[in-house]
């Protein structure tokens, strides 16, 4: 009898370990469709506004004069300004950096690293003998806003190549998302799946699907445009975990997994949020 229990347990473990990223993504969509039967899942690229008609109306009014507009303009200017060696950001990216955000983050076969768009922007700088920019807000976020803007309407298309290191990075990001952490012991999942659409104080919680489509974001709370990894740090602090450094391996793996889950959804960044 004892043997049988162990055998069953092993089967369950192997079944879960063998779910492919695509199975995960489809299961996640099914999870949200079951929780919100009437919701068009593609609406979830609008975060909490997919769940809250009142807040959505206010938000749409704000979108008439979007608070991220200046960031796009400043980002465009910075993007086009040549480095000291005469090269530009456009030289570092496919298609001159226009309409490419759907491909980020990607797995770099040469180095085995996960490359987010912000990571690639700073790598472009250092490869051209420029100082890297601060990760969270300011010029880097503005450039990312401009690049996101040129990618609007494209569908998220994160690829996990047939390479055990890429799959391991995806799995690490997935484990991070579902693992409780911090003194308050919340996993990302507790708020953004189990409780998506509910109120935490005066704020409605967004759902995990579409969470990666609209960055960078101008948050009223921040009063400026910031990157997705700024939000990771903020979430960590809110559950009283010590945040990792921006673009740490942990956060890049998380962004890889999170972005894959939004595959097939329309890019709509930059965006504004409360």
């Amino acid at each position: 009898m004892k043997k049988l229990i162990v055998a069953c347990f092993l089967t369950v473990m192997m079944a879960s370990a063998h779910a492919t990223p695509e199975q995960d993504r489809l299961a996640l969509r099914a999870f949200f469709q079951e929780r919100f039967p009437k919701l068009d899942l593609n609406e979830m690229i609008n975060g909490l506004y997919a769940f809250d008609e009142g807040a959505r109306e206010q938000w749409l009014e704000m979108e008439d004069f979007p608070p991220y507009e200046i960031a796009i303009e400043e980002g465009e200017e910075a993007f086009n300004k040549p480095f000291a060696n005469g090269k530009t950001y456009a030289d570092c990216f496919a298609n001159g950096g226009m309409g490419v955000k759907q491909d980020f983050p990607y797995f770099d076969v040469g180095t085995g690293e996960i490359i987010t768009m912000e990571y690639a922007i700073n790598k472009c700088r250092t490869d051209n003998d420029e100082e890297p920019l601060p990760w969270l807000v300011g010029e880097l976020a503005q450039i990312a806003a401009y690049m996101a803007y040129t990618s609007r309407g494209n569908k998220m298309n994160v690829v996990i190549p047939d390479d055990p290191r890429a799959l391991a990075a995806y799995e690490a990001g997935k484990e991070y998302y579902y693992t409780r952490r911090g003194q308050l012991e919340f996993a990302c999942e507790n708020c953004h799946m189990q409780s998506a659409g509910m109120m935490l104080r005066a704020d409605r919680l967004s759902g995990m699907l579409g969470q990666a489509t609209h960055w960078p974001v101008y948050r009223s709370k921040w009063g400026e445009i910031g990157t997705i990894q700024k939000r990771f740090q903020e979430c960590n602090s809110q559950v009283r975990a010590k945040p990792y450094e921006a673009q740490s391996q942990e956060y890049r793996q998380l962004e890889y997994f999170l972005s894959y889950m939004s595959n097939g959804m329309e890019l709509n960044g930059p965006a504004s949020r409360r």
């Binding site: 879960s16 995960d24 997935k174 409780r180 799946m193 189990q194």
Partner: peptide, 23 residues
């Protein structure tokens, strides 16, 4: 003690996190 408790949670979660992944 808070560092020890963080480790305790992580050890428990290592076993449990996959239970909440939609199948």
């Amino acid at each position: 003690l808070h560092a020890e408790l963080a480790v305790a949670t992580a050890v428990r979660e290592k076993k449990n996190w996959h239970l909440y992944v939609p199948k």
